[in-house]
Design a protein around this nucleic acid. Structure first.
Lengths: 252, 252
DNA sequence: CGCATTGTCCCATTTTATGAGACTGCGGGG
DNA sequence: CCCCGCAGTCTCATAAAATGGGACAATGCG
C-alpha cells in the first residue's frame, strides 16, 4: 500500500499515548520509535500545536489533549448509525433493563460507539471507546461472523488471547460458533470478554445489507438468567432489525 | 516554532473532518488543502490504515474512524482530573439536580471533558467534546479569568462572536467580568452561550494552585431562578474546592 | 455510448525530514 | 556549593522523503 512514512510516524507518536500509556516523556517516545531526540521533539511540537497533545503539569512528558475529545465528538456525526440507533437503543434499554451497546469493528478489536446505560443500581457501564478483542463477547462474535472471510482467516492466524476462563481461544471452535451465529442471527456470550457478564448481540445492516455494526445488551450474569435469554434475545434481534430498516429507508 | 510540515499536513487532513464536515471526499480534501490528488490520497490512505479514517459505505469519501473513539477514551486516563472529579460531580448533581460539567480550555475554545447529566426530565445534556468559544458561558469565563494574561490579550484581539443576544462581545466589559470572577471565585452566565441556559462555574486548581479546569452546573433558566443561585453557587464552589483539595493531596 | 470524475500508480524533481552535535538550564547528589 | 546528568532546543550538512504531473483504469451519469 502506498503510504506516507512521515505522516505515519506522526500518527505512531499520537497512538503511542493510547497503546503504551497516558503520560509519556519525550525520551521514552524517542526510544520506542527509534527516533533521534530532535526528530521526536519536532513531532511532539507539531501534535502539541494542534492540541492533540498537551504537556503534563509538571512539564515532564505529554498526554493526549482536549482536541482529541472534539474529534471524537465529530466521529458520531460522520457515522450515520448512532443517530438512527439511539432512540431504539433507549427503548431496548427500558424493555430489557440492561445496558445497551452499539459496537463496530476496528481492526482486531471491537469498539463501543454508543451506549445507553441501564438505570439499575447494579449495572454495567461500558463507555464509548471501550474495546475488546474481536473474538470475545457477543458483539465481537457477531461482527466477526459477518466479516470478510479473508479477514477472519487473517485474524485467526494469531493466537487468540484468553481474557477469561470462558474465552474461546480455539480457532476451530470459534469458526463453528460463527457459523451458528450466521444461521441464527444472534450471539450469546457467557463471561467470554468479562467475567460474570452475559451479553446478547445481533447484527445491524445498512441499505446494501452489509453488516455495519452490532447491537447488544450486557448485564451481570445473575441478572440475565437462562430462562430470560429467549425473551431478551428476541428484543435485541427486533431492535437491531428496526435500526437496519431505518438505515435502509434513509440511505436508499 | 520548529515544526514538521508533513506531519502537520497529515493532522490538517484529519482535523478537516472535525471542522469542515463529517464526510469528505478526496477531491474536496485535495482542494481545501491545495494538494495534488496523488498527495491527498497518500495522506488519506495513511490515516485509513490506522483506522483514524474509514471509507463511507458507498465508497464516496471518508469519515472519522473508530480509532478516534479509542483515543478519546485514553484522554481521560491521561488527564488526572476526571477520576478525582467524577464522584464529587455526581454528588453535586444530586445536590443541585442539574447537569454537572467539567471543562478545560483548548485554544480559543472550551471543551467539555466530563459530565454528569441531571436525572430531571427537562435537562441539559452536553456531551464530552462539546465546545464553546472561550468568552461565552460561565465555565468559559472562569477558565479565561485564570488564563495567562498574554493569552487573554491575544484572544481579545479578534472580534468575539455573538452566540446569543446575551453574549458578551465587548472586550472591556468582558475584562471587567473576568476581574469580578477572580475576586469572587465563581462565574454566573445567563444565556450567554446557549439561549435560556443558566450556568454557574468555579475553578479547579491543581497542587501548584494553577487553574486546570472548571466545574460548572447548567440548567434551563426557568429552573435556575435568581433566588436559588446563591445556594447553587455555594454548592459548586464547595465541590470545586473539594476536587482541588484532592488534586493537591494526590499530586504532592 | 462517450464524457466526466474518481481512484491508482510511476517517476524525476524538489523539498523536507533527519540525526549528530553543540548549547542551555535545571535539579539531585556528593 | 559545585558538579554531573538529563531534558529540551537549535543549527546544519546530508540523506531521504514527499510531491505533483501525467498515464491509466474503473465507475457513474447523462
Amino acid at each position: 500500500m502506498a503510504r506516507n512514512s512521515t505522516a505515519d510516524r506522526a500518527i505512531d507518536v499520537l497512538l503511542l499515548f493510547e497503546s503504551v500509556g497516558p503520560v509519556l516523556g519525550a525520551p521514552e517516545v524517542s526510544e520506542r520509535l527509534r527516533m533521534s531526540r530532535s526528530t521526536t521533539y519536532r513531532y511532539l511540537q507539531s501534535l502539541r500545536s494542534y492540541d492533540l497533545l498537551e504537556e503534563a503539569e509538571d512539564g515532564r512528558g505529554f498526554r493526549l489533549g482536549p482536541r482529541v475529545l472534539r474529534l471524537a465528538k465529530a466521529v458520531r456525526q460522520g457515522l450515520g448509525v448512532p443517530e438512527v440507533a439511539l432512540p431504539i437503543m433507549r427503548e431496548l434499554m427500558l424493555e430489557t433493563d440492561e445496558t445497551v451497546l452499539l459496537t463496530r469493528r476496528s481492526g482486531a478489536n471491537v469498539v463501543c460507539v454508543e451506549r445507553v446505560s441501564s438505570q439499575h443500581p447494579i449495572r454495567l457501564s461500558y463507555e464509548r471507546g471501550h474495546i475488546v478483542p474481536v473474538h470475545a463477547g457477543a458483539s465481537a462474535k457477531v461482527l466477526l461472523a459477518y466479516a470478510d472471510p479473508s479477514e477472519v482467516d487473517e485474524l485467526l492466524k494469531n493466537p487468540l488471547p484468553r481474557l477469561t476462563k470462558h474465552s474461546v481461544t480455539e480457532p476451530a471452535k470459534l469458526r463453528r460458533q460463527l457459523e451458528q451465529i450466521r444461521r441464527e442471527g444472534f450471539a450469546v456470550s457467557h463471561g467470554e470478554a468479562d467475567a460474570n457478564v452475559t451479553g446478547i448481540a445481533a447484527p445491524i445492516r445498512d441499505g446494501a445489507d452489509r453488516v455495519v455494526a452490532a447491537l447488544s445488551i450486557a448485564g451481570v450474569d445473575f441478572r440475565i438468567v437462562d430462562e430470560a435469554i429467549p425473551r431478551l434475545t428476541a428484543c435485541v434481534v427486533r431492535a437491531a432489525q428496526q435500526i437496519s430498516d431505518r438505515l435502509a429507508d434513509g440511505h436508499e
